[in-house]
Design a protein around this nucleic acid. Structure first.
Length: 586
RNA sequence: UACCCGGUGGUGUAACGGUAACACAAGGGACUUUGGCUCCCUAAUUCCAGGUUCGAAUCCUGGCCGGGUAGCCA
């Protein structure tokens, strides 16, 4: 940019930015430092198109942090009229498995992205990588080293002291070539030799101190089988794979920043096409752990029920919980992209979810903790079908009918024998509205003579208020939900809370580890809960708002006649706040 | 202790040398057949010190603080 005019023009007078750059479209994902860098590259002609890639290692399930990267890489491709490849970074057969490549593909598709016919594997390039390695050997830029792993570490030096050169560093290209070919041929035991780039053992960046390019490893690879007993390291494979695929912008997380000089060194030593690596901060979320290692630990130690446990931040966990791809994408859009390594408040994720579900989830009535209500003046055998609006946010979603009868269940929380201040639900003498039903007034209660617990609430109803409006115009302070006892469906409901009790799971006492902060109440099973009969055939995965309670989705554990619901997220609850301020347990 | 990167309300992100803004969270209010939604309002921000400039969150220097890096992991 040439800042020739010190006073900026108002936006309306400014020429449209970037329209001249080839393939540059408006940025739906907003703008961030990466998109700016790309625009600059297009403007200066460093690249004339945009091609990104999402490069997971198939050694675990994708999580919400990957979603950030997926939205970034595919989103940038969309914004700039380019393409985004899926590439599995499968250079370590000891950790990888087809189970993961399949789940990763499923999750990316579910999130709404498409790599078309461009699903690649680093292992596709093993032969090319091998040939390039020989080329570097011939150029005297790589050598076979016989140091043991311990010795390599020792020779590398430390962060503050330079390393020492390997005694094998100055072998001739001929000898190196011979040794390297024999490495490939399987003449040497695992770990006995490596191929290393010949760079600088005194380099202040330890990644440049003759990094390992190949190790000997007899492990069956999920794609190449037993063809190879030497495998390239990340550093040797990644940049060359990017180059081969014609990637323009290789976007990765901050911890690879210090690898960039090496990334560029290999490309330059080979004299091949050069992509540009740009790093951004990975996602951190409050009340959540995100590292693959920890997620794996949660699963393996049985701390959760599996990778798709609805409490997990994995994509499959969120999906099972009832999250929508739209909510996750919107979240990723709103958090932005930067190099500052911060922590996102999980309430932003929950906000995006509610915003989406509010718009699309049909409403139903369900009672989690039933309290029996008897309408004393309602005819014994009578059943009425009442009209209920499916979604006040969207009249197009229509109306359904729900049965009403003499005996109902309401929520225990919606009745208080002695109401606290500002409580305006049902209590003796008070009148409330039953959603889509009648006004009812509490006359008296039946209690357990031993415990004093309220067993049954007796009410009278006003027949003139059918549907919920009083002809005389009188108002009630509260509308509560209910189900007809004889028509309600018993179901299981699983209520979830944050997996950790602290915003930062690492915030633990001396000697304890993050597991000490696991929330023992992160899962609460309510069974039976009661839902209105219209839910009878609700399909797995379908989402509903249980009015006044939250959003719920049907769990795959459901069987015919035995529905299981996950609470995806609760509704915001102003009363809970008031009650909390009053020092009650709400 | 070496090198790299970063630091803007509680949290995250904008502002591209010209009045520090948006969202979430928080607090208050209006509305309401969901104490939901929606709407309105309030409080709250440039790490510090110098320098350049008419003017600095932005450029420069120094400091402070935070993160990353010493796998034959990625």
């Amino acid at each position: 940019m040439s800042g020739d005019n010190p006073i900026p023009k108002p936006a309306a007078e400014r020429p449209d930015p970037d329209v001249s750059a080839a393939g540059c479209a408006p940025c739906e994902g907003g703008s961030d430092f990466i998109r700016e860098a790309i625009r600059e590259d297009l403007r200066t002609g460093r690249y004339d198109h945009v091609h990104t890639r999402f490069p997971p290692e198939p050694n675990g399930y994708l999580h919400i942090g990957h979603a950030k990267s997926i939205c970034l890489n595919f989103g940038i491709a969309q914004d700039f009229g380019g393409k985004c490849n899926l590439r599995f970074d499968d250079t370590n057969p000891t950790k990888e498995d087809v189970e993961y490549v399949e789940s990763i593909q499923e999750d990316i598709r579910w999130l709404g992205f498409d790599w078309e016919d461009r699903c690649f594997y680093a292992s596709d390039y093993f032969e090319q990588l091998y040939q390039w390695a020989e080329e570097l050997i011939r150029k005297g830029r790589a050598y076979v080293c016989d140091l043991t792993p311990d010795q390599v570490r020792e020779y590398r030096g430390t962060l503050t002291e330079p390393g020492r050169e390997s005694p094998y560093r100055n072998r001739s290209p001929e000898e190196n070539l011979d040794l390297f070919r024999r490495m490939r041929a399987g003449e040497f035991p695992d770990g006995s030799r490596t191929l290393r780039a010949k760079i600088d053992m005194a380099h202040p960046n330890v990644n440049m101190r003759d990094p390992v390019m190949y190790r000997i490893l007899r492990a069956r690879h999920h794609r190449t089988g037993d063809k190879w007993c030497i495998y390239p390291t990340y550093d040797w494979a990644h940049g060359q794979s990017d180059s081969l695929e014609g990637i323009t912008h290789s976007i990765c997380t901050l911890e690879f920043e210090i690898h960039r000089p090496l990334y560029e060194w290999f490309i330059q030593a080979l004299g091949i096409y050069a992509p540009r690596q740009i790093e951004f901060a990975r996602l951190n979320l409050t009340y959540t752990v995100m590292s693959k290692r920890r997620l794996l630990q949660l699963v393996q130690e049985g701390l959760v029920r599996g990778w798709d446990d609805p409490r997990m931040p994995t994509i499959c966990g969120l999906r099972r919980r009832g999250y929508t791809p739209e909510a996750i994408r919107e979240f990723c859009r709103r958090i932005g992209v930067a190099k500052y390594d911060g922590v996102i408040d999980i309430s932003l994720l929950e906000h995006c979810l509610r915003e989406d579900l509010n718009r699309r989830a049909p409403r139903v009535l369900a009672v989690l903790r039933p309290l029996r209500v008897v309408i004393d003046n309602y005819p014994e055998e009578q059943v009425e079908q009442l009209d209920a609006v499916n979604n006040p946010e969207d009249p197009g979603m229509g109306v359904r009918q729900i049965p009403f009868s003499k005996v109902l269940y309401i929520e225990q929380d919606d009745f208080r024998e002695t109401p606290p201040p500002k409580y305006y639900r049902l209590s003796p003498g008070r009148e409330v509205r039953l959603r889509w039903g009648y006004f009812i007034r509490c006359t008296h209660v039946l209690k357990d003579p031993q415990t004093g617990e309220v067993l049954e609430v007796h009410c009278t109803y006003d027949p003139a208020t059918r549907g919920g409006n009083a002809p005389d115009g009188r108002k009630v302070k509260a509308t509560i939900h209910w189900v007809s006892a004889q028509h309600a469906l018993p179901v299981e409901v699983r209520l979830y809370d944050h997996l950790f009790t602290k915003p930062d799971p690492d915030d633990v006492a001396e000697g304890a580890d993050w597991r000490a902060n696991l929330n023992p109440q992160s899962l609460e099973v309510v069974s039976p809960a009661f839902v209105e009969p219209s839910l009878q055939d609700a399909p797995v995965g379908s989402r509903y708002q249980f009015e006044r309670l939250g959003y719920f989705s049907v769990d795959p554990d459901s069987a015919p006649g035995r529905l299981v619901f996950n609470r995806t997220v609760s509704l915001k609850d102003a009363w809970a706040k008031i009650a909390k301020q009053q020092g009650q347990d709400a």
